[in-house]
Lab assay of single mutants.
Amino acid sequence: TEDEKKIQELLKRANGDVSKAEKLAQSQGNEELARRLREYANK
Rank of each mutant, 00 (worst) to 15 (best):
R35K: 13
G16P: 00
N15S: 07
V18G: 02
Q8T: 10
K43G: 11
R36T: 05
Q26E: 10
K5L: 11
E2D: 13
D3C: 15
N30I: 04
G16M: 06
N30D: 15
K23G: 06
A14N: 04
L24Q: 05
T1E: 12
N15W: 08
R38N: 06
E9A: 05
A21Q: 00
K20P: 01
Y40D: 05
A34V: 10
Q26R: 14
Q26P: 01
N30W: 15
E9Y: 01
S19K: 13
R35A: 11
E32V: 05
N15F: 09
Q26A: 11
R35W: 03
K43S: 13
K12Y: 06
S19M: 10
I7G: 00
E2M: 11
E22F: 04
S27W: 06
G16D: 04
E4L: 14
E39H: 03
K20Q: 10
I7K: 01
K6G: 07
T1R: 12
A14P: 00
A41K: 08
G29M: 04
N15Q: 09
I7L: 14
A14H: 05
Q26V: 13
A41E: 08
R36D: 04
K20D: 05
E32S: 08
R36G: 04
K6M: 15
N42S: 13
K43D: 13
A34K: 05
N42F: 06
E4C: 15
A34H: 01
A14I: 03
K5N: 08
E9R: 02
G16V: 00
A21I: 03
S19P: 05
K6F: 12
N42P: 09
Y40F: 10
S27V: 08
E4M: 13
Y40R: 07
S27T: 08
N15P: 00
Q28R: 04
L10G: 01
K43E: 13
L33F: 04
E9I: 04
D3Y: 15
T1F: 13
R38M: 05
V18P: 07
L37F: 03
D3I: 15
D17A: 01
N30V: 03
E32D: 11
E22Y: 06
S27R: 07
Q26S: 09
G29C: 05
D17G: 01
